[in-house]
Design a protein around this nucleic acid. Structure first.
Length: 126
DNA sequence: TCGCTGACCCAGG
DNA sequence: CCCTGGGCCAGCG
């Protein structure tokens, strides 16, 4: 597991700390706001490297479809994540997803649901 | 110094 | 719904 000493990770943590209570942000969104557009994975790495979980509201970060990555990965922390979100007023649909249109964090008033495709992550094949 | 590996994401089949 | 491939970064053995 990667450590958390780099400036790159610190930038990501700074963004996560800005997510308001009762809202969620996607990994890709966090990465973009931190200055790393198209690098959602980086946000995931940074959060996984988090040791001091009280320093950052990591539970407010979900995947692009509003699902909890920790649940899919089989990590028990996913249950905690969902509980914490529900305590903040975030509701889950039947499929265990958060409706990003409703709970997605919109820093400037832009829809968070469709903003996942700001940049092609895949370069065109020749 | 190399080579894993990990809380992502999207296009395709 | 499942699987594959490619792209990104940092830490550890």
């Amino acid at each position: 597991m990667a450590g958390a000493g780099s400036d790159t990770y610190r930038r990501i943590y700074a963004v996560v700390r800005r997510i308001p209570r009762g809202h969620v942000a996607t990994y890709g969104q966090v990465a973009e706001l931190a200055g790393y557009p198209g690098q959602a994975r980086l946000a995931g790495y940074a959060l996984h490297a988090l040791r001091d979980e009280r320093a950052v509201p990591w539970h407010r970060v979900v995947d692009a479809r509003g699902r909890l990555s920790l649940l899919r990965s089989g990590s028990g922390a996913g249950v905690t994540q969902r509980l914490r979100l529900e305590q903040e007023g975030v509701r889950f649909s039947a499929g265990g997803r958060v409706e990003l249109v409703v709970f997605g964090w919109r820093p400037r008033g832009r829809p968070a649901s469709s903003g996942a495709r700001a940049r092609p992550r895949k370069r065109p094949r020749e």
